[in-house]
């Protein structure tokens, strides 16, 4: 199937950026250390903040660093290329291809994420586990649920970024929206601070937003605070946002296609 080929091609392409990957791993690890120490201080002050123990909080830090590139927590993730194609009008060619635009980019994004999960995720997580006492699960099954949750999170992340990219059909300069979307993801995914630590009603609302599906849910699955019914609810929550965003993407895409046809590209 062509989707697999696209994903594999994208995977291989990102595998060639070796120096950039090494540099990214280094940076992720450095940031991991810094945030980990602040969390140690924070949890020393409030031992059960957000329902996490210290080891769980530290696991959250390193999970966030490991997923940073794969789940494109700061935006980007290759969809700038689509944005550029829309801006230059090259996308008209893509729309006439038999392959569906959204599926094409989803496949490419999954390939990229797969590579970056391995290339940029494993080493920071391993370093974190060596230096800090992490609460990593011992059973394969939890790791399996975690990977599934990561996959769903990446789909949600893609859904959001795809919408942002498509907005370039209507916006003259998409960089502002990209920036806002990146910032929103950084903050509402829990990258800066776990959403469970957010105070009061605000804390409850942010856990319902789509960004919560990208990092908070997978991290909770790995840490072990989501098991049984909570695990299932988390996965359904992710899948629901993923489906909703992909459907919305479809809708916007068909509107954009009509626009291209009307304006002749």
């Amino acid at each position: 199937m062509w989707c697999v080929a696209v994903a594999a091609g994208s995977f291989r392409r990102y595998a060639t950026y070796r120096v950039a990957t090494a540099a990214g791993v280094f940076t992720n690890t450095v940031f991991g250390f810094i945030v980990a120490y602040t969390f140690v201080a924070l949890w020393a002050e409030r031992p059960h903040l957000g329902g996490y123990g210290q080891a769980q909080a530290l696991t959250f830090v390193w999970t966030a660093q490991a997923l940073l590139a794969a789940a494109a927590l700061m935006g980007g993730g290759g969809l700038e290329e689509l944005q550029e194609r829309i801006r230059t009008g090259d996308v008209a060619v893509d729309l006439y291809r038999p392959a569906d635009l959204q599926l094409w980019w989803l496949a490419a994004d999954l390939g990229r994420a797969g590579m970056q999960l391995i290339g940029r995720g494993v080493v920071p997580m391993a370093v974190g586990a060596l230096v800090f006492p992490l609460a990593l699960p011992g059973d394969v099954l939890t790791w399996g649920w975690f990977l599934l949750s990561v996959l769903l999170g990446i789909v949600v992340s893609f859904g959001l970024r795809y919408l942002v990219a498509l907005a370039s059909f209507w916006l003259l300069d998409g960089s502002g929206l990209s920036m806002i979307s990146g910032l929103a993801c950084l903050f509402f995914s829990g990258m800066l601070l776990p959403l469970r630590v957010f105070p009061g009603g605000f804390g409850e609302v942010v856990q319902l937003l789509p960004w919560a599906a990208i990092l908070q849910v997978p991290a909770d699955v790995l840490i072990g605070v989501r098991t049984g019914g909570a695990l299932l609810r988390g996965l359904v929550f992710q899948a629901a946002w993923g489906a909703a965003l992909l459907a919305l993407g479809r809708l916007v895409q068909s509107a954009a296609t009509r626009r291209v046809v009307v304006h002749g590209g």
């Binding site: 201080a41 924070l42 910032l183 950084l186 903050f187 800066l192 630590v197």
Partner: peptide
């Protein structure tokens, strides 16, 4: 946007201090 990106960092610190009185 540049301002907001930096401000979010500080918002995270404020959120921490909503739970604690002193850090380190």
């Amino acid at each position: 946007g540049n301002f907001a990106a930096c401000a979010l960092d500080f918002v995270a610190i404020l959120l921490m201090f909503s739970q604690i009185d002193a850090l380190g």
